[in-house]
Structure formats: structure tokens, C-alpha cells
Nucleic acid binder design. Structure first.
Lengths: 211, 211
DNA sequence: TGCTGTGAAAGACTTCACAGCA
DNA sequence: TGCTGTGAAGTCTTTCACAGCA
């Protein structure tokens, strides 16, 4: 392996992996950079550059062997092992994420869910009983949970994230629309639905201006 | 106004806007590039470069007037008007998005929701009754809906998106983990929760390697 | 003096174009 | 011949550094 791993490149790796799994489920065993790129909206040279980090995995005249390629991508991403996550904040979005199938399909299991609101503590959603956030430290230690999915209101996000960090969580997927400050020991990935929607609105407005 | 509008820059504009609204609600009326940047995790020079597209809005020695700045950002993003959206696909995630407050706070209202599953059609979620997807064309025309939030299973996404495009939808926020092909007339923004979580896992694994 | 606006430099990312292998 | 791997070129983005204004 060689070369740098930019954020954009890692995002493409996820997409390659999903594309590969899809075509493999259809029985295909090899694919070339052009076909894989077209399927995902990525240029063929970009595909080859990305795979250059795997030493000479491709086969001139043939392309890449799907299973082999998928395996090294899984390894690169760290998806060749099982990960356990907890949902923190069980409002609308949190409850939906408990039942979200995409995570489990990728080897990430939601093992626990927490909230502070007595009205939802004790409720069972998709087979998981929501616990009092006060039990967070004990539960994640017992179940060896590494990741937290943070879907609390923006105002509570930093304070809650501080607790997660203190409890030894390794990574936080943050849905709150705020910039979290965390110690270096904790990784952070942000999803901001409003930003995505505003980007869409911007694109729509730009298109209208051209006409 | 001048300069290009990259995707990354537009995403930052959303963040500036939210930061500004937050500090204004605390009574602050002016802010400089350094303070705004620190609040959002963006460098001060980046902030100034981004605002360079607004002709000389800043005031040397003082900074930017918050309300004035927020207003031009809203205009740039197209958020100085109200937008109507429909949820298409009312599974877990779709139902959560119907109730998501962040959209409404930003002037984007969810006016209708659709599904194909007879078991959910007719159900009322957060005050909105889920309609048969067959009524999509009629409803969006009647309610003048411009945007669609697509949260159907991956296998159905392209086919559903084709219908949305044919009905004259201007933009689609796609949650399905597939690369959609759409006519140029339709704008597209993708949210892929699995990619975000995999990026987080990658970051965690990288951090462990260093230690 | 404090801060903006902005050229110039640096850096990151993508595409091009083609040598070379099976 | 068909396709990979990869330097080189091109493009896009960010940071630096400082002149100039209030």
C-alpha cells in the first residue's frame, strides 16, 4: 500500500465496495476501471489512481478480480471486522437510525440506545430498549461499544459529546448541526441534513438563473 | 458578486449562516473573520476569501455586520424564499424526515409524503397523511412542490427518480446508496449514511495504527 | 491599531496520455 | 489488442502575507 488517503478518496472506496458487492451478487467476477467508474459516476483514470495504493492488483487486459478487490478495500476501510455502535439521542432521527438496515448490512451493529427523556427511556424500538443516558459508561464498557451515533438537539451536542469522549468512545457520527470540539483521541464524522438540502436548493437556483 | 461557487464553498456558506443566526440570537451584531472561523472550524483567510464574492461587505477594523452578511448568504443560497418538498418513501428514515425540525427552521416545508406500500398509505405521521405514490404528479402540481426527498430502498431508487424527474421536480435529495442518472434539468444532492459511518471507521482505524 | 481584501505561493486533487504487460 | 499503472500537466482549493482602509 502507498499514497495518501484523502477524505474524498475514502468516500469513493465505500462506493467502490458497494458497487462491487452489487455486481458480484449478479455473478460478475471481474470488472475494469471504465465499467466500475461508469456505474458510480467516477472517471476511469480516477478509479485506477485510487487502486494504485494496492500494489498491482489489476490485471492488464482483464481488469480487477471483484472478490480480491472488495477484500482489500474492506481491509483499507477497516470493514473487515465487526463494529458496535450506540445511538445517543432517540428523537425522530435517532429512532429511525436504530432501525436503519444499511448499517447492519455493512457489519456495524447498533447494540444500545440512550436518551435523557424519561418519556422514552424504557421504550423498545426495533427490538432495542432505550436506556437512561446515565448508564452510558457502564453499558458501553459491558458491550464493548466503540462508536456513537449522536442525534441529540444542537444545544446539547457538545456537552453530550464530552461525556462520550470521557467514556472512551473511539468515534462519533454527529448529526447535530454544530462544530464539535473533541480530544484528538476521538474521531469525528459529520452529517448535516440541512446543509445537504441547502446545497440542493442552491443548485436548483443556479440552474434557473442559466435559463 | 464574483468568483466561482464550489460545492465545498456552498457547504461553508450554510455553516456561516447557521453560525450567524446563532450568535445573532445571543444579541451580537458584528463579527470578524477570525471569530466566525473559530466557531465553525474554518480558517480566517478562508472565511475572508469566501466572503470576497460579496463586494466589500466587510469593514476594516470592525468585521462584518451579522444581519447584512446573513442576508446576502441567504440570497446566495436561495434561502430567501420558501421551498416546498415531498418525502418519497416512508420507511423508517422517511418517517423520521417528515418530523425533522431542521428543515422547517430553514424555510423548507414538507408538504406531502408518498409511499407504494398499502400498509402505510393513509397513515398520518406528524400531522401529514401518507399518499399513494400514484398521486404524486397530481399532488405536486396542486401544492407547487419543487423538491423531493427520496428515501426508498436502493433497488427502487432509479425507477422512482425517473418518475420524479418526469413530473417536473426541480431537485432531489437522495438517501438511497446508488448513483442516480437524471436529466440535466433536475439537480441532485446525495446523503449516504453508510459512507459517513465507514469514513468514521476508517478514521478510527488510522488513529489506532499510529499508536 | 485591527481588520479586511487579495495577489502570490503552496498544496491537493483530477485528468491526460501513453509505456508496458498479458 | 485491451487494459492497467503512472509520470506529467492541468485544475481547483486553501493558506500565506501584507498593503490599505477606518
Amino acid at each position: 500500500m502507498k499514497g495518501g488517503h484523502s477524505k474524498a478518496m475514502i468516500a469513493r472506496m465505500s462506493r467502490y465496495l458497494r458497487g462491487l458487492e452489487r455486481i458480484m451478487s449478479g455473478g460478475t467476477t471481474t470488472i475494469n476501471s471504465k465499467a466500475l467508474g461508469e456505474m458510480l459516476g467516477i472517471s476511469d483514470s480516477q478509479v485506477r489512481k485510487d487502486f494504485a495504493m494496492f500494489n498491482r492488483l489489476g490485471h492488464a487486459g482483464i481488469g480487477y478480480r471483484c472478490e480480491e478487490l472488495a477484500e482489500v478495500i474492506r481491509q483499507t476501510l477497516g470493514m473487515n471486522q465487526v463494529w458496535s455502535a450506540a445511538i445517543v439521542g432517540c428523537g425522530n432521527l435517532g429512532q429511525a437510525l436504530i432501525g436503519y438496515r444499511g448499517f447492519r448490512q455493512r457489519g456495524i451493529t447498533i447494540e444500545a440506545a440512550f436518551d435523557e427523556n424519561p418519556a422514552v427511556i424504557g421504550t423498545t424500538i426495533h427490538g432495542l430498549t432505550i436506556q437512561d443516558f446515565g448508564q452510558f459508561a457502564a453499558t458501553i464498557q459491558e458491550l464493548e461499544i466503540q462508536l456513537a451515533i449522536l442525534s441529540v438537539p444542537a444545544a446539547a451536542a457538545q456537552k453530550t459529546a464530552d461525556v462520550l469522549a470521557n467514556c472512551g468512545i473511539l468515534g462519533i457520527l454527529n448529526f447535530a448541526p454544530v462544530n464539535l470540539n473533541l480530544p484528538d483521541s476521538v474521531s469525528l464524522s459529520n452529517v448535516d441534513l440541512t446543509i445537504e438540502l441547502e446545497q440542493l436548493v442552491f443548485a436548483v437556483v443556479q440552474k434557473q438563473k442559466v435559463d
